[in-house]
């Protein structure tokens, strides 16, 4: 146990965090799997029986909680080799109609939360003169989709955070990367928080949003499971030099590629046509 590399992962109750924690533990890491609410730790506890995996509470929205968790890991393991910033959720609604509180809540987790954990862990990695940080970004950090504009904007921010932090940390032998999954089969969509204006049926965009929801909730047969993302995270963490970004899923690879070849006006036209279909649905 002593010479195993140590990983700290946020948001491990379900989905990508859950599978990443298990996979890393199986691959010889000592894993600190953290959850916002340890009452939800049953399934992970069961699945990880006998593995070098410990569960700790960590709510990325709260500074005190982040400090306590990171200090706990250092006390127990003495070091951190990898941080996986996975905790996140998606807001759904028209950009115009989110209240201040809704905007703040979305950023609190996806952006400020990610920064909070990173800020706490960086000094440790620096002292070790080694370490890796992986952010779970999204295809939504490369392209903006209707109905989830607020969520996309947080993931765009994560892209810029990765790009700048990657260069800032390099002289200290700390590597930073972003993993960009496309659509993945996890409870992510169920856990989505819909804008109050939409839930109460008083949105000016009501019908369009409903059509987008109906479209997006059709489970795609092509969407990979969270294990695929976990495998990519493991591959990144176990490589000698991490690339800047890793894409997971056909959509995450293809969409940006198509976009890359398209002139702006054509992309604009394509988006408009797609959005118009929701409107008329």
């Amino acid at each position: 146990m002593e010479n195993k590399p140590v990983a700290l992962i946020t948001g491990c109750s379900t989905g990508i965090g859950f599978e990443t924690a298990l996979l890393l533990a199986r691959r010889g890491w000592r894993v600190f799997a953290t959850l916002r609410d340890v009452k939800k730790s049953g399934p992970l506890r069961k699945a990880s029986a006998g593995m070098p995996l410990e569960i700790l509470p960590l709510d990325v929205d709260r500074t005190a909680s982040v400090r306590r968790a990171v200090a706990g890991v250092v006390r127990k393991a003495g070091r951190i080799d990898a941080l996986v910033n996975n905790a996140g959720w998606g807001a759904f609604g028209a950009l115009e109609e989110f209240s201040d509180a809704e905007i703040r809540a979305q950023y609190e987790t996806n952006v400020f939360g990610l920064l909070r954990v990173t800020r706490e862990v960086l000094p440790i990695l620096r002292r070790q003169k080694a370490g890796k940080v992986v952010h779970i970004g999204s295809l939504a950090g490369q392209m903006t989709f209707a109905g989830i504009g607020l969520y996309c904007s947080t993931k765009y921010a994560v892209e810029a955070i990765t790009e700048s932090l990657r260069l800032e940390a390099r002289p200290f032998n700390i590597q930073v990367a972003v993993v960009e999954p496309g659509s993945i089969k996890t409870p992510f969509k169920v856990n989505r928080r819909k804008a109050v204006a939409f839930v109460e049926g008083r949105s000016a965009y009501q019908k369009t949003l409903q059509a987008i929801l109906a479209f997006g909730d059709n489970p795609s047969a092509l969407a990979p499971g969270p294990v695929r993302v976990a495998q990519t995270v493991a591959r990144a963490l176990e490589s000698r030099r991490m690339a800047a970004r890793y894409r997971v899923g056909l959509d995450a690879v293809l969409f940006p590629l198509v976009r890359w070849f398209m002139p702006d006006f054509l992309y604009d036209f394509a988006l408009r046509r797609m959005y118009a279909r929701f409107r008329k649905a």
Partner: peptide
């Protein structure tokens, strides 16, 4: 940048 894109569509 992303906010502009979303608002432009919506």
């Amino acid at each position: 940048n992303s906010i502009t894109e979303a608002l432009r569509m919506e």
